[in-house]
Every structure is written in C-alpha cells, then in structure tokens.
Amino acid sequence: MLSQRQRSKLLPYIYLLPCLILIAAILLYPVLVGIYTSLLDRDMYTMEGVFVGLRNFRRLADEPVFLLALGNTLWWTGTVVAGQYVLGLMLALLLNEDVRGRFVFRALILVPWVVPLAVAAVAWKWIYAEYYGILNHILRSLGIIRHNVAWLANHETAMWSVIAVGIWKGIPFVAIVLLAALQSIPREEYEAAMIDGAGNLQSFIHITLPNLRGISFIVIVLTTIWNFNQFDLTHILTRGGPGNATQLLSTYTYQLFFSAFQFSFAAAVAVVMLVVLMCLTVIYVRRII
C-alpha cells in the first residue's frame, strides 16, 4: 500500500498516463517504426526485410518520380502559402475598414475554412468538370476559351487548378488571424503618423506591416506545415496525375505503399517529409513557447 504522500506524488503522472500512452502508441511508435522501415528493404514479398542502411535514400536521389514529387511539393507549398498570405492580408485589411455590415462579411468569408476539405474537393471537381462544368461555361461565355478544357486531366492546367483550390481554402484562416492582429494595433499610432503628415501608404509600411511581423511569421510557418502535409485535395482531385504532374510527396508515399507495396521505399519518402517538417516545427515551437 502506498502512503498518502507517495500517492499524491504519483497523481500527476497517473492523470497524464492515458494521454501519454495513446500518444506513444499512435504517434511516437509509428514514427519510430516508419524510420526503422526506411532502413530495410521491406516490400510485399520480403515481409521480414534486411537492414540496408541508407540505401533507400540513395535510391531516392536517382528516382525521377521522387524528384518530380519533391519539386512539385516545394512548388505547391510555396505558391499556396504565398497566395494565401497575400490574399488573406488583403482581405484582412478590407475587413478592418470601418464600414457597415462588415461583420456579415467576416462571417461569410469563413465558409471555405469550415467546409471539410474532402467535401470541398468534390465540389471543385464538379466546377472543373470538362463537360457541364461551370468554369468552362463561364470562360466560354466570356470568350476566354473556345473549347472545353479538361482542367484536372491536362498537364499544363492540373497543378494550377489544384493550387487555386489550396489558396481558396486557406484565405479565411490567414485573414481572421491577421484581422485580430490589425485590430490590436493602437489607434494612436496612426493618428500620430497622420499629424506628422504620413499618407495611407506610408502608415501601412511604417505602422501596419511592422506590427504584423510576429504574427505573420507564425501564420506562414503554420500554413507551410499544413500545406506541405496536404493529401486530401490532391488525392481527390487528380490522384497525383495526369502522369505525376500533381504528384506530391504525400500522395507519392501513399501510392508507393498502398498500390505499389514498396513499404520501405514509401517509408523513406515519408522520412524525408518528417525531416523537413521537424525543422519547421522547431521554428514554430520556439516562437510559440
């Protein structure tokens, strides 16, 4: 029997135990197994797998589809993060203006964020449809295109089509976070600047932007992590196609594992993702603690 004192010393750990066990079993253990698997040559036929060190990673460096997926992922992440940030900032500045009905707009613009991404992806697939799709109809009636475009099945347009949806989805989050920061800038700073004869643009550059610096950094790191990880949208819209044109590291990993059954190779790609993400996470955690 434990004494009262010993028990109260153990109590904090007892309360934490279920949480920690689950995190260990469902988050930490798989990551360790994943890293270990990436060092074997395990596939569907050799379930045991021999230890091969870093050979899978060396093979990755010569694998054209991996390099393509890596390039696509960087391109996708960079473009979507930049697009979300610039448009989100514009929207935040508009919402920060003192006009009637702005609360209605603030509520309406949340829709892309609150709709489940997988569901939104299905809706966009219908918008992009080659036949009967509304996008082709609009562009045709505006005279911008003559013939229907297969947006998601065409090499030149597929990546941009997915990127557009990615940006669309993320604008509201960026906008409302930046809006909160804009509203916390003291009014006096602007008034003082106006008395000193500063114009709108000057106030924006010298007051607004510096005040947004800290929060912008966090927003950009977070959206980079999320978009780097993104899977649902690409999987539903294009499955990484046509011909790997929209293949990301996430969809490539999934395909290697669940369709090609190259377990170790898939794990190696995922470990590459892990390394990148952990670097970003260190930046995020140091900022936020």
């Binding site: 469902i26 988050l27 994943g34 990993t253 999934y254 594992f257 995922a270 993702m273 993400l277």
Partner: peptide, 9 residues
C-alpha cells in the same frame, strides 16, 4: 506536426 502519411503506414 508529424506528417500524416508517415503515421498511416
């Protein structure tokens, strides 16, 4: 922040 595809395998 762990990548979901690394966990899913």
């Amino acid at each position: 922040m762990f990548p979901a595809v690394l966990l899913v395998i």
